[in-house]
Design a binder for these strands. Structure first.
Lengths: 337, 337
DNA sequence: TTGAAAGCGCTAACAC
DNA sequence: GTGTTAGCGCTTTCAA
């Protein structure tokens, strides 16, 4: 059978409590005892039983990660990073999908009350500040674009990231720039884009702001199709608030005979792996997901400890990744017909 | 505090054991008592404490799902389905990534010995039959293309699915068909494709079998590029053993001036959400992932109960999903230049 | 600084 | 059919 605390204690010639003290890094243990104990642990290959520990401590050992969809590679890789970060805190991660639906997000928030979990990391799309009344004292941290006054938050500076995306488009020679995104979780990105245009003496006319009701390829394609049918003069570049949107936008553009990036440059946001298999490969913004995951777990631990923890909003880094879709002169050939 | 078993028992006026019996669906309980108990459970909102239960039962309450990469939407949605299916058996799913590396897969197999988990669902790419010596008696079920004699397996009939894909290409008028995939996990798909060609009096000449060392867009693009540089006469269609490969193949084709599907039809395998944002949208094979997940969990439960469970290999269904990339006459326009 | 012992909430013999 | 009770392996007062 697996060795237990008692086995380690016997081997080290100390009491159970002493072993427990060593394992939990309690102060006031003589270096000598500590060494004896760690040696015994090593020799026996002892690993604590999490069920027993959690039972004794009154925690469940599980945190929930709520994301819109796991089959969006952005959230998938975020999930993996979170699983890794949570492991260090002896937490299993239960992944839940909200499909971006408000009802599902509220439901998760409500589950906060039944004490079946130790904490929650939530990436909401439709939650409002007032919904947080639903919340209990359970450790909670939000990801994503929206910040809530009363809840910890970890995320990139979306406005700044969008700004650098638009900046990149400007630097590659585009002036007339359309934005696909918002309203919704993508607001900050639209705001950042608009601000940058304005800072350069440009504008985001209503005709060039293409709102979407979702962030998938279909939504991007429909938005761009609607624009193309509107008869407005073409933009030289399109900034999309997600890569998936951008794929749909490119599809619509090409179906209407426009070359990307030669006729229209397209910029995405998220850095998903398929960007590299697309034609053209997609220029994008890459958030530092590992850091986001690390800090989210850190937030939960902090809240777990304190009774009335201070609310913290943390900003993590991002990177601009220029690829073919915004190249100054596109390598994309005509299709032979 | 959360109600405990004892609270329910008191409320129902019975003993703890009786409540436990009801909860665990033991036989021989009078309908009357059962009703009293369920009522009490309802009123108190009782939910069993999993840590306590697992501790008492000697299980950990956790199973591992090992997949190559979670940011491949195929595995992401499989993971979600598995999480749902596992929940019904009171299991948390710990997702682990192997990146398709043999070392990582062996490591997971080895973890089977430390009894930190109750079971494992593994989707291996590089494991060999002989590696299974590493395995302990822990419940284990394999997914994916490869079947192992001594281990439960759940999956679609890859050869048959590949056959129907090739059949579809033949029915849409293509005769000269290339196959991108193998060696490796994709072998069965190549086998199925080859068999179907042969059944139609056709052949898969060596020049038209493009092997790959991975299943990503990059691999597909490189394989197709190499072919295009070889000077061999062009195929009328390409069957790729994954959608991601297909995206890369399409990229290479178009970079060389070929139109899809008008010059060359392309067929994928997996049914990932990005297929719909691609241009052209990708025809593919959609495995029944929900069924795969359900049966994988069922297999673990079966093994958990029995001492020497019979090995079961189970086949689940798949669907052919024809889209633009194999349309008889493609709707893809030329790019305006 | 270390030890003894009482739970944490549930399951499973074993008796009734 | 139903009740009693001894653990499951760990944490944590409270003494020593």
């Amino acid at each position: 059978m697996r060795p237990r605390l008692a086995d380690v204690a016997a081997r080290a010639g100390v009491s159970i409590k002493t072993v427990s003290n060593v394992i939990n890094d309690f102060p006031h243990i003589s270096t000598q005892t500590r060494e004896k104990v760690t040696a015994a642990i090593e020799e026996l290959g002892y690993r604590p039983n999490l069920s027993a520990r959690n039972l004794a401590k009154g925690r469940t050992g599980v945190i929930v990660l709520g994301v819109p969809r796991l089959d969006m590679p952005y959230f998938a890789s975020l999930a993996m990073q979170l699983i890794t970060a949570a492991e260090a805190a002896s937490w299993w991660v239960q992944i839940r999908q909200t499909r971006g639906e408000r009802a599902a997000e509220l439901e998760l928030l409500a589950e906060t009350r039944q004490s079946r979990i130790d904490g929650m990391v939530l990436s909401p799309l439709r939650l409002r500040e007032s919904d947080l009344a639903e919340r209990s004292g359970l450790p909670l941290v939000m990801l994503g674009e929206r910040r809530f006054a009363a809840v910890d938050h970890v995320g990139i500076d979306n406005a700044a990231a969008a700004a650098s995306a638009v900046q990149h488009l400007l630097e590659t020679g585009r002036r007339r720039i359309a934005v696909v995104g918002g309203p919704g979780r993508t607001d900050r990105r639209v705001v950042g884009a608009r601000a940058t245009l304005r800072a350069h003496g440009l504008d985001l006319p209503a005709a060039l702001h293409l709102p979407v009701r979702g962030v998938t390829g279909r939504h991007g394609e429909e938005a761009m199709k609607a624009f193309l049918g509107s008869g407005h003069p073409m933009p030289e570049a399109v900034f999309c608030v997600t890569d998936w949107l951008a794929m749909g936008v490119i599809r619509a553009l090409r179906l209407h005979g426009f070359a990307v990036p030669d006729d229209v440059a397209v910029m995405g946001f998220d850095d998903i792996p398929y960007d590299l298999a697309a034609l053209p490969t997609l220029s994008t913004i890459a958030p530092d997901r590992e850091e986001i995951a690390r800090l989210a777990v850190a937030s939960l631990r902090r809240q777990e400890g304190a009774t009335a923890p201070e609310v913290q909003h943390t900003v993590v880094g991002h990177r601009l990744v220029p690829r073919e879709s915004t190249a100054a002169t596109g390598p994309v050939p005509t299709t032979r017909r």
